[in-house]
Write a protein that binds this DNA or RNA. Sequence first.
RNA 1: GGAGAGAUGGCUGAGCGGUCGAUAGCGGCGGUCUUGAAAACCGUUGAACAGCAAUGUUCCGGGGGUUCGAAUCCCUCUCUCUCCGCCA
Length: 425
Amino acid sequence: MLQLSTIQNNKEEVLARLAVKNFDGTKIIDEVLAFDAERKKAQASLDNTLAKANSISKEIGQLMAQKKSDEAEAKKKETASLKEEAKKYEDQKTHFEKVLHDLLVRVPNLPHTSVPQGKTPEDNKVVRQGGEEPKLDGSAKPHWDLASEYHLINFEIGNKVTGAGFPFYVGKGAKLQRALISFFLDRAIAAGYVEYQPPLLVNAETGYGTGQLPDKDGQMYFVNEDGYYLIPTAEVPVTNIYRDVMLKEEDFPVKMCAYSQCFRREAGSYGKDVRGLNRLHQFDKVEIVRLEKPENSYLVLEEMVAHVEGLLKSLGLQYRILQLCGGDMSFASALTYDFEVYSAAQKKWLEVSSVSNFETFQSNRMKLRYKDKNGKIHLAHTLNGSALALPRIVAALLENNQKPDGIHIPEALRNYTGFDLISRQ
RNA sequence: GGAGAGAUGGCUGAGCGGUCGAUAGCGGCGGUCUUGAAAACCGUUGAACAGCAAUGUUCCGGGGGUUCGAAUCCCUCUCUCUCCGCCA
């Protein structure tokens, strides 16, 4: 959530930057400012009333100590009207605070000044491209055919046991999953990230902390009985470890990584690009999360991009890095790079990672702060990225490495899989 | 699931319904002493909001209540611990 001071001091700039995300903030920002003024007024009135009541109470205390109970009784009557007044201002204050918060929580983060204007994925900017285009002949098959031909992934039994979007991984398919997870985690750990295994269910407060709520309510699976949400990404539990935490300057950098399964309802996205592994309700992902001082966060973002890029190079996949345009960015992000790998048999680019700097948007919600050397308190910056999401990596690996004798496993993975070829039985 | 105990400042731990934002110890910071360090001694040391400031208000797990006045009494929720039951 944006800081009130940012909105108060730079209203015009805030509106202009929101417009880059195609968000018309004129009405809501005016409301925010108006309600904040009301809130302050109520607070000031309440403070005055309470100050009066407190001083009378003290006098009563002194009178009682001196056994002057008559005078004390007289004083008590004076406070009756103050109590009512205080109650009134208290209610006002609570009301305005709630309204203000509900408004603020609906305003997206400001995009970084470098973010290009745009409405659709076509407006994203290609930053760079790497890897070689896989050479396949006309008989190349998409991964869903390969998956069934080599008995790696079984969508049908997933349909039967749960529903669409919940496949079973089988045999070498399952092993390949495990290999990728271990490979990604080991690379993150080697880069200095501390591994966490987070809970897969979180409470609503946590959902608000990272910005999924209220924006993405309805996209998360919800366990009604206990009020828990299934996590759409490990970012949610891992970043919230630091909710309501006051760090010291020397605690930085904070580098965390986590493997988790991710659950997404994907409501409203049926029909398009959903074949095979392209879009699932449950999938595996290794996430990297960082907390940083504001002055370092954009350097760190580039570092994270380099880390993800290194993974894709190791796997020998052709990839490109996009800077997302305002319209394609998430609610909470200030700057996002997406990674896509080329799927040779489907002849299209598949998103496999998203690396973002949230600046203080999440930390303001979470009260994630640090004290600098002078004891001044600041909000920390939060960043995260997928490193990497498995399903589309698996899709690209299967498709791009299909040869007449089977599917070849990239060198970097062979220590993890224990095999270098998936062949027909 | 049943029974009981508890939640206080960075940590440990006191706290009678009326100068309690809170005793004390540890830790932190500053100083004295020392060539330097340790020890000892002295001082200092929570946060949020409003205000140029003086200052005021709020915060003793969360929420509600009683009272002129609540860390202290009552209700409720959450969490932690102990015992019993169940269990991968």
